[in-house]
């Protein structure tokens, strides 16, 4: 019988592994937005991503004993996973325009570009050597990747829905980063950020509405035709 050597690369602890997995899910949902072809699907992806961020806050609250994060998790779940999607859907209910194929590149090339950009974010932040007491440093790198991929989403997709959702999901990436760096941030500040987002959602919703009423489409390609 041949003996097996188990020289494994040291695994992170169960808590770190879980937190990193949730952070990876947030990033994967961001990638999913690159290919979403219906505006409902785009909003649902955003809602799912917000749920994942709230779950991460919950994981930190349980694992590290920071009870005020429960309040933050509940608030962000309510606001970002329920109210924002409802507001978006409500404002655009009667619009029949599609966002399929609004990418300026093929989906596979967009994914490859995003992988490169995400890799840059990963290793740039990893090289800073920031250590956090509550979350593993990989989660910070992952949130940087979320922010950068949301930039790619806003740049490459030429429809207002994806660009607005890209902006909102950028906020998801930032709030994930704030969980790593400043989990003990005073609750009032975090809540203030959340309500800032709500204002942004309403403003964006109105702008999207005006745009789709004028051009009968969500595409931003037609925007330069409005001049004069």
């Amino acid at each position: 019988m041949i003996e097996i050597l188990t020289v494994a690369r040291p695994a992170p602890t169960v808590f770190d592994g879980t937190a990193n997995t949730v952070a990876v899910v947030v990033l994967l949902l961001e990638f999913g937005m690159l290919r979403a072809s219906l505006f409902g699907a785009q909003v649902r992806l955003y809602a799912a991503q917000s749920v994942a961020v709230s779950v991460l806050a919950g994981v930190v609250a349980v694992g590290r004993g920071v009870p005020e994060l429960f309040i933050l998790a509940a608030l962000s779940l309510l606001l970002k996973a329920v109210i924002v999607p409802l507001v978006m859907m409500g404002q655009l209910r009667d619009s029949r325009a599609e966002i399929a194929g609004s990418g300026s590149l093929g989906v596979a090339s967009e994914v490859i570009i995003s992988i490169l950009v995400a890799a840059f974010g990963f290793f740039a932040v990893g090289a800073l050597g920031i250590h956090s007491e509550v979350l593993p440093a990989a989660a910070l790198s992952l949130s940087m990747a979320v922010v950068l991929v949301s930039f790619v989403l806003m740049i490459l997709r030429r429809d207002v829905i994806s660009q607005a959702i890209g902006f909102f999901s950028l906020e998801n990436g930032v709030s994930m980063a704030s969980l790593v760096i400043a989990a003990g941030l005073p609750l009032i500040l975090e809540v203030a950020f959340l309500f800032d987002l709500l204002v942004a959602v309403v403003v964006f919703g109105v702008l999207i509405r005006v745009q789709s009423d004028r051009t009968k489409s969500f595409s931003t390609v037609a925007l330069d035709r409005l001049r004069g």
């Binding site: 992170p12 990193n20 994967l28 093929g106 596979a108 994914v111 992988i115 593993p136 440093a137």
Partner: peptide
Amino acid sequence: TEFVSAAFLLAVLAIFTLYLGGG
């Protein structure tokens, strides 16, 4: 190719998280 690029993304992320020490 989209399906395969999704699988590729998962595998690349696996390697990235390993290198960052979080995987």
